[in-house]
Design a protein around this nucleic acid. Sequence first.
DNA 1: CTGGATCCAAATAGATACTG
DNA 2: CAGTATCTATTTGGATCCAG
Lengths: 119, 119
Amino acid sequence: MGKAYNVMAATCPSRTVLHRIGARWTVFVVNALDEGPCRFGELKGHIRGITPKVLTETLRSLEADGLVSRHEYDENPPRVEYALTPLGRSLLVPLRAVRRWAEEHVPDIEAARARRPIA
Amino acid sequence: MGKAYNVMAATCPSRTVLHRIGARWTVFVVNALDEGPCRFGELKGHIRGITPKVLTETLRSLEADGLVSRHEYDENPPRVEYALTPLGRSLLVPLRAVRRWAEEHVPDIEAARARRPIA
DNA sequence: CTGGATCCAAATAGATACTG
DNA sequence: CAGTATCTATTTGGATCCAG
């Protein structure tokens, strides 16, 4: 059982997976759920600047892919909690690394951009 | 000097960085350059399905951010080689992990998607 | 061979307002 | 609180043709 899938192949299903991971807000949501289950409003507050529409879309996608679970409590006012599934937690490992890389290399990137007079 | 940057903050510059990393084809190009310098045509052949326009755009972006270097040989026919910079190689570490995750978890994702009746 | 230039289609994101 | 509904703006991608 070697490498069954290869993202470099044009029609490999792993591309769809990679596409989902690379979606604009996936990294944010998955990382935000790192510390445990979270309500919709909490997520929205945590991920500054995300709109409810986009957050909903992202959560639905992650849910469809089995990365996030949604638990709706039968209460009033409504309460809904999102959490990472085991699969989602496994994805968290690389995505945490990506996040850290982004946060750690801001100066490097900015320096590189500054070095370019006009792009 | 603790955490200076936080991607969760709406205006943190790390967001721009993360955005660039998450760009559609970044993962592909960086991973394709894993094995060493590569010519334009080789990259295009390696990353099946990418169009020259998109590949060019991606390379320019990565170059502007100091992740990829471009070396133009003064030959005819023209020869241009792209390679990862040290910074790009540091990014390769997490991106390689992301790629591997995508390739390894195709069955899981597909199973999850199949579990959803309509979505 | 390495792309740049154009035009266009489609997917994605954002702003804003509103509802169960 | 937890979303929907709309409408628009931006981004992205693909096709095609062309030039150094």
